[in-house]
């Protein structure tokens, strides 16, 4: 499972990252890198069983508090 995900990410490194470096698109590479690494970290964490907090939970609570007080 872990190997599978890493392979997929590796594939994208080959496909995208290397051409970016070649063409010296540093800004794009930076953005790419940040998002890429974030995604990879999350993936690893999920593999390890860490329960990542959902961004929707605070939204749900916020809506509930607004609607609850009016409705």
């Amino acid at each position: 499972m872990f190997l599978f995900c890493t392979l997929v990410y590796a594939f994208f490194v080959f496909t995208d990252v290397v051409p970016l470096v070649q063409n010296k698109k540093w800004k794009v590479l930076a953005v790419y890198g940040v998002i890429f690494i974030t995604a990879y970290v999350f993936t690893v964490l999920t593999e390890l069983g860490v329960q990542l907090p959902s961004p929707l939970t605070p939204i749900g609570d916020l809506v509930a508090s607004i609607v609850g007080s009016t409705g």
């Binding site: 990410y9 496909t15 998002i35 890429f36 995604a39 999920t46 959902s54 961004p55």
Partner: peptide
């Protein structure tokens, strides 16, 4: 960034992993 196609991959990957823990 001068073109959206270059970052589709990482955004997509991030999207996929977010899907796993969004609920």
């Amino acid at each position: 960034l001068g073109g959206y196609r270059q970052i589709v991959a990482p955004v997509g990957l991030l999207l996929m992993i977010t899907t796993c823990f969004i609920y």
